[in-house]
C-alpha cells in the first residue's frame, strides 16, 4: 500500500443483515485518497459512502477487506492514528442540553487537549460568542460549525466531512467550502462526501465516484472531466434543417433543439463553424457546453435515466 495515500481501502465489503434479509452496503470497494487537497466522495443514495466512512472510523465493522489511514491498518491501529483524524459523520451529534463550549470541553478533556484550545476553535468557526448556548438551540449551520470546531481540536491531518453542507443556506455552504479549501491550503487532507455535485466540483482536487457499493471511477477532477464526457455545442443558424444535414454529412452527431442544434462530441468548436461556413451556412451563435462533474457522475453511476425529471441535488449520499 502506498505511502502517498491518506486513505486506502482494498476489497472492502459490508453486508447489513436484518430480519428482512441481507443488503450489501459496500462491495469490494477500493478507495484511494491522496495526501493533501480536497477529495470528493460521490455516489447516489445508498451507494455506500457513509458506510465506508463509518468503517474507516471504526464505527461499523467491515466484513472483508483492508483499510489504511496514513499507512496504519484500521480499525486495529486506529488508536495510533485517531489523533490525526477529525470527522463529522452525517449530522453533528452532541449532547443537546450542553452548551457548545461544554461539549467541546468534554471532548478536549477526553483527548488530553488543553481546555483553552476550546475557545480558540470556537472563535475560528465564528461561534466564540455562542459557545454558552445549548447545542439544541443552535441552527443547523451552527451545529455544523461546532462539529468542525470539534474536529479542529485535534489539529488533524485528515478531515472527513460526510455531507457537511446538508441543510445549510448558501452563505453557510460557501463558508464550509472556504473552510475546506483553507484546510487543504494548510496541507491537510479533506475527504468530503456531498450530494451537491457543483459544490464538490468547485472545491475538490480529486474525486471518487461510488455506485452500488463499489468505486466506478476516481482520480483528478480535471482528468475525469476531460476523459469521460466530450463537450457539446449549441449552435444557432438561419436554416437549422439545412445545417443539420450539413453537419450530419460531415460526421457530427447532431440533433435539433427548437431553433437551435445540439452537436455532441465536439472537441474543437471551430470545426463546427468551419464545416458550416464552407457550405455557406453561417453560425449566428455557438455556445460550447463543457462536461461537468454532474454529467460525469450521472454517466458513471447510470442514474441519468432514474433521475430524469428530478433535480440532480440529492443524488449522492
Amino acid at each position: 500500500m502506498a505511502n502517498d495515500l491518506a486513505i486506502e481501502t482494498r476489497g472492502l465489503r459490508k453486508t447489513y443483515r436484518s430480519r428482512r434479509g441481507a443488503s450489501v452496503g459496500v462491495r469490494s470497494l477500493d478507495l484511494e485518497v491522496p495526501v493533501g487537497g480536497v477529495h470528493g466522495f460521490l455516489g447516489p443514495n445508498g451507494s455506500g459512502k457513509t458506510t465506508t466512512i463509518r468503517m474507516l472510523l471504526g464505527l461499523v465493522r467491515a466484513d472483508e477487506g483492508e483499510m489504511r489511514i496514513f499507512g496504519h491498518e484500521v480499525p486495529d491501529r486506529l488508536p495510533a492514528v485517531v489523533r490525526r483524524i477529525g470527522a463529522i459523520v452525517e449530522h453533528p451529534k452532541f449532547y443537546p442540553a450542553f452548551t457548545g463550549r461544554k461539549n467541546l470541553q468534554i471532548l478536549a478533556t477526553g483527548i488530553g487537549v488543553p481546555v483553552r484550545r476550546v475557545d480558540e476553535v470556537l472563535d475560528s468557526v465564528g461561534l466564540g460568542d455562542r459557545g454558552k448556548d445549548a447545542f439544541r438551540k443552535y441552527s443547523l449551520g451552527m451545529k455544523q460549525r461546532l462539529a468542525i470546531a470539534a474536529t479542529l481540536l485535534k489539529d488533524p491531518d485528515l478531515l472527513i466531512f460526510d455531507e457537511p453542507t446538508n441543510g445549510l443556506d448558501p452563505a453557510g455552504i460557501r463558508e464550509i467550502r472556504e473552510t475546506m479549501r483553507a484546510l487543504a491550503v494548510e496541507g491537510k487532507t479533506v475527504l468530503v462526501s456531498s450530494h451537491i455535485l457543483a459544490e464538490v466540483e468547485q472545491v475538490a482536487d480529486t474525486v471518487s465516484i461510488v455506485s452500488e457499493g463499489t468505486i466506478v471511477s476516481q482520480g483528478r477532477v480535471a482528468d475525469l472531466l476531460s476523459s469521460r464526457t466530450a463537450a457539446t455545442a449549441r449552435v444557432l443558424v438561419a436554416d437549422p434543417a439545412r445545417a443539420l444535414n450539413i453537419l450530419q454529412d460531415a460526421g457530427f452527431v447532431v440533433r435539433g433543439d427548437g431553433e437551435a442544434l445540439i452537436v455532441e462530441g465536439v472537441e474543437n468548436p471551430a470545426d463546427v463553424t468551419r464545416t458550416l461556413a464552407l457550405q455557406g451556412s453561417y453560425v449566428s451563435a455557438l455556445v460550447p457546453h463543457k462536461a461537468d462533474l454532474e454529467s460525469v457522475f450521472l454517466e458513471l453511476t447510470g442514474t441519468a435515466e432514474r433521475q430524469s425529471g428530478e433535480p440532480t441535488e440529492g443524488v449522492a449520499r
Binding site: G58, L78, G110, A150
Partner: peptide, 18 residues
Amino acid sequence: SAEHTSGAIGNWLTFEPR
C-alpha cells in the same frame, strides 16, 4: 443511554476509538 439516544456516542468514538 442519553449518549446513545442522542447519537453522541458515535462522535465520541471518532475521538476515542478504544
